[in-house]
Design a protein around this nucleic acid. Sequence first.
DNA 1: TTTATTTAATTCAATTGATAAACCAAAGAC
DNA 2: GTCTTTGGTTTATCAATTGAATTAAATAAA
Lengths: 362, 362
Amino acid sequence: MSRSDLAGRLAISKAGMTAIVRDLLERGLVEEKELIRRQGRPAVRLCLKASAASLIGVSLQSDPVRVVLTDLRGEVLRSVHVQRHLEITACCDSLAEAVQKIQENLPDDIGPVMGIGVAQPGFVSRDRRICLASTVFGWKDVNVADPLSERTGFPVRIENDANVLALGELLFGEYAEERTHFSLVCLADGVGSGHVLGGRLQHGAHGGAGEIAHSPLVLDTADALPCRCGNRGCLETISSLKAMQGAARLAGLPEDIHLLSDVAMKGDPGALRILHRGAGALGLALAQMVQMLDPEQVIVALPEPLRAGLFGIVLKQEVERHVLRRAGQQVELILRDLPPDAFAVGAASLAAYRFLHGADPE
Amino acid sequence: MSRSDLAGRLAISKAGMTAIVRDLLERGLVEEKELIRRQGRPAVRLCLKASAASLIGVSLQSDPVRVVLTDLRGEVLRSVHVQRHLEITACCDSLAEAVQKIQENLPDDIGPVMGIGVAQPGFVSRDRRICLASTVFGWKDVNVADPLSERTGFPVRIENDANVLALGELLFGEYAEERTHFSLVCLADGVGSGHVLGGRLQHGAHGGAGEIAHSPLVLDTADALPCRCGNRGCLETISSLKAMQGAARLAGLPEDIHLLSDVAMKGDPGALRILHRGAGALGLALAQMVQMLDPEQVIVALPEPLRAGLFGIVLKQEVERHVLRRAGQQVELILRDLPPDAFAVGAASLAAYRFLHGADPE
DNA sequence: TTTATTTAATTCAATTGATAAACCAAAGAC
DNA sequence: GTCTTTGGTTTATCAATTGAATTAAATAAA
């Protein structure tokens, strides 16, 4: 936007805007771009300078751990893999090493690193320093941010992996400006989601907002599958990759999701049933989500073969069947790929948010 | 809080706080209360003066329509009933009359009326002036706020009935200060809910946040009851008063919810099944809600006989079964009565919010 | 009892920050 | 070419905010 657009939008005088923009230009945070021609003197389009700072994003979601260096727009400048350690000290040590490594011989045109964001499966404290609980790591009330901050010298914040993905969409997404009410669901080994409502990432009272993996889906639990959480009929037991792969193994079908999708497309009733059931349950959960939160978009990030194949088709059908018939509300359902760097880039957005807003989300 | 507490909390200098409080005292918005003794000079506790302004709340939720006059703490000063009209002009006319009537011969110690809030079943636009859709009234894109504002001379805002109940809890509730992450569910003829996350009432992209009535609960819809929304297996078809009363009628049991509850307590298998099924479905929906939003409290407002009887017991059991087993999260489930004025008082809180914050929620 | 200490709240000079109004600049409209 | 429109800057002015000094009112210590 131009100075005068911004002055109008932010309810600040033109004079004030001039002063603010001058300051930002001097500090190299903003740059002047092309002229916008309307009637009268053309306006100078201002743009956040992506190279003003860079951020480090760490994804503990997968093994090996991914560490990326991004600019302020979420473009990946560098990427490093490290082995995942489940013990906190070893984990921080190896991460600190990776952070060191990713900064080696940085060219001059890359802005200074301003912070580290960490994406983690599990619950995170409100100040985003402490992992309250993580089944994968076996952690409980473990301070992750401070040790890593001590070792690296950068401010560190941690957040749930699915939430970070939603935050990444809010900050780095292609349509970031227009998107203020959306939920982002990611389907991988497990199922997770994050909600952005009114432009704010929702964290919940105990960092558990968006946790749909153990959402109880089945009213009559007697014939539902048991879940590792101790209940029966959780979404994860039906729709997660692991669940569908497990069901395929039991049925003597290929475990690989690509092959399973192919077999289903060719008409195999067992494979059809598994994918249909998975997509149906996820569709139901999404419909409940839409009903409860009334988002503008629901973005589902999932592996390519699922998106393109039967699973994606059924998912869209199911959501439409349950949701779109309702009055007035149009929800946009967006299926997209889940690239391997996505969580790490999302984690970087957590650091970017801190740098840009001068405070943590919420 | 005292001046210096507030100065610290709001990051304002003590000098500034003195000036602000003086202004508020002069305008009669705040009053000095008792001294708080710690070490050093005692602090003067400041308190919002409840009688500084009064608000009018209108509930279109029931027939007859309820109109209340409240102070800034939500205490009901007066209450009036009017017949409900479904046609917009007649509706506004009768409401304007009631608003006129409730203001007649106001004693001097009651603050000036500062606005009107209207609670309405259905969807409401983001600016809270237009009813986007209401099945009860048959309205679609009907401007409710402006005609009523013209007739009465007060600013008018409308909001979904369940949402104003949640807003009322946020502003007027006994524990309002501590409660920033909660969901409030009301069970009446229909089922509704409102979410307050991070101290903000969630409206959703199209005013539909909190609408759980048509949340699809049943995975296998073949044997589920059809709903007036066109789908099958909605929460409303199982747990609403109407649904349970309907089921009771079919089973030859008393329709009155009090009697039905009694019969169930005495062991009637049909009544037990109906209440059990209703509470079970609502419990499942609440568990999904908790899973998705991670609130600190879930407050369920429902008729006395349901709360005290079997329904309440089963509801608590079901929520615990699905939720409380999860790691780390403690959710407080609060069952309470749903007094007849609740929606109107909630509506008044919408006007109070506007007066206190100088802007609408969110 | 007296004195010191602590915290609350006010006063006031000084500073900062934001603004309105005037002005310059650069385009299209006429 | 001149006028109009819009963008952006400069500057004098005004108001909001603050820091430091001060007064006030209590408790703790001597």
